[in-house]
Simulated assay, not measured.
Amino acid sequence: MAKFFKMHLLLIYGASLIALFGCSPDSSKAHLTVEHAARGAFAAAISHDGRYSLVSSVEHGVVLWDNQAHGLQYQWTHSDQPDDLVHSLAIAHDNSTAVTAANNRFALWRLSDGNNIGYYQIDTGTIRDIAVSNNGRYVLYGRSDNVVVHLDLDSGRRLEFLGHQEKINSIALSPNGHFALTGANDYSAYFWDTRTGQVLHRFNHPSRVTKVALDPQGRYAFTADSMKKASIWQLTSGDLVAQLQYIARQKIFSAVRFNQQGDLLATGSPNRQLTLWRVSDGAKLDTWLVKPREGSRPKSAVVFDVAFAKRDALLVTESSSGLMEQFERVKE
């Protein structure tokens, strides 16, 4: 049974979790750090504006944090089963709803009051990634059996996208729920219309596609594979805009976000790196490092999500360290 607690009922709990660290002379480090999961996080998502963080951990279930007030808003659970871990989360672009997913079930939550909107069970495959549209009307999830499912929770309409030949790794949904970008182990990413299932563009890679993202304004798509190719595409034409410029022989992305203007891209990696790129030519503009958890071995952290805040002056991250960090950007 789901449960949620208002912030004033969790004052003691919230106070025990929050730890603020002062400014650091090292420009590669965060200027603000807030602890969101004392023993590290299992998964996390940030709202597009950096206002909210949704964090899953073994100790606390799923918690929603307000990153402006640095307060705990709600605590949610799927079930009392300890192995029913929430590994995929998303917040709607309009901050209306959030979706949380374990292997075989997902739940929808309202951010205004913390109430559960519904629980949903899947019978085939397991959920690999999940997304939710504005107002919580549409949910998109990718499964381990190569299928992507688009649900209209208002009408009950269900569409299964069968274009992929291997398991799904990453998905993205437009804010209005009408377009999807999906990447899989079959070396391809598809941009398709969720109302018809029609493929609008196919983006090919030399290895399995591990991460995809959509510009919320509908201008660009991002696709990256497991080796060296990370590309930005123009959605209207399907043409290549740029490839991210880096010399590493292999680079994996665990988080990606376009800014609101569509001229910047932020990425996070499993090796603590947070990087800012220019969309027009894929040039690297800046790099930071998120903080590893105290006492962790090895001293590393996965960047789960990143968002732009304060008119792109700040980048906000959540990582496996259980920390929310804010990095100041020096504008050109």
Rank of each mutant, 00 (worst) to 15 (best):
A2V: 11
A2T: 15
F4R: 12
A15K: 15
I18D: 11
S28E: 14
E35H: 03
H36K: 05
A37C: 11
F42I: 10
G61E: 05
W65V: 10
W65Y: 11
Q68V: 14
Y74I: 02
W76P: 11
S79K: 09
D84E: 11
A92S: 15
T97C: 13
R105W: 04
F106Q: 06
I117F: 01
I117S: 05
Y120K: 00
Y120S: 03
D123V: 09
D129R: 01
D129Y: 04
V132R: 02
L140H: 12
G142S: 08
G142F: 05
V147Y: 04
D152R: 04
L153E: 15
E160I: 00
E160Q: 11
F161E: 08
S170E: 02
I171T: 10
L173C: 01
L173R: 02
L173Q: 01
P175S: 01
G197V: 03
L200C: 06
R202A: 06
K211M: 15
L214W: 11
T223K: 13
D225H: 04
S226G: 15
I232D: 08
W233P: 01
Q245K: 14
A248R: 09
Q250L: 05
K251N: 14
F253I: 02
S254G: 03
F258G: 08
N259W: 11
N259R: 10
N259H: 10
L264Y: 07
T267H: 07
L274W: 13
L276P: 04
A283I: 02
K284D: 04
D286T: 13
R293T: 06
S296T: 14
V306M: 00
K310R: 12
A313V: 01
L315V: 11
S319Q: 04
S319H: 06
S320N: 03
F327Y: 13
